[in-house]
């Protein structure tokens, strides 16, 4: 049994279940966004929606021109993750991702970094085997790379934001 199979059959499901439980507990426990945060989150949803629409439009135009670069599954996955990145990034930089009651973001950033690393490693292994692109089309194996990069990007964003906040002197 190679390392990729061990990760995908044993470690990954446990990590994913832990992530889902953590997120559910967080969602149920913390619901109190203040009025500024609600406005920011509304704007973030709008930008995420525009991202999804623009991405769909580009793919449709390419498809109409006779260029198919991905399957429907890959399209849905990429659209979802692009929108997700836009929403989360905007909320983090405008201080509207965490509710008023949540003070520590360390655990969340670590979880994202862990999930991102696991997916990125899996994605790189798949890319190394040449499974990411077949017959000029992206396969679903590219989603591991996308998830890995997006989660690590968001984790890095938390670190950058924390650095900026620590530099910001309370006036």
């Amino acid at each position: 049994m190679d390392i990729l199979k061990i990760v995908s059959t044993l470690v990954l499901p446990i990590v994913l279940i832990a992530a889902v439980v953590y997120e559910l507990k967080r969602t149920l426990k913390y619901t109190n966004f203040d009025e500024r945060q609600q406005i920011v989150r509304g704007r973030a949803f709008k930008y995420a929606y525009y991202t999804a629409m623009i991405f769909a439009a580009v793919i449709i135009v390419l498809e109409a021109g006779g260029t198919t670069i991905m399957s429907a599954v890959v399209f849905a996955g990429l659209q979802l993750y692009l929108s997700f990145i836009v929403f989360v990034s905007y909320c983090i930089f405008k201080d509207a991702y965490f509710t008023v009651s949540e003070k520590s973001v360390k655990g969340y950033a670590l979880m994202l970094a862990g999930l991102g690393t696991i997916n990125l490693v899996g994605g790189i292994i798949q890319a190394g085997k040449g499974h990411v692109m077949e017959n000029g089309m992206l396969t679903k194996d590219c989603l591991g790379l996308v998830i890995g990069v997006s989660f690590l990007f968001i984790a890095a964003e938390f670190v950058v934001k924390k650095f900026l906040v620590s530099r910001e002197e309370e006036e």
């Binding site: 109190n32 203040d34 500024r36 945060q37 201080d95 008023v100 309370e170 006036e171």
Partner: peptide
């Protein structure tokens, strides 16, 4: 007042 510190900062 039940808001985030960043909201007070933004108002100021």
């Amino acid at each position: 007042v039940g808001v985030s510190r960043q909201t007070i900062s933004a108002i100021e």
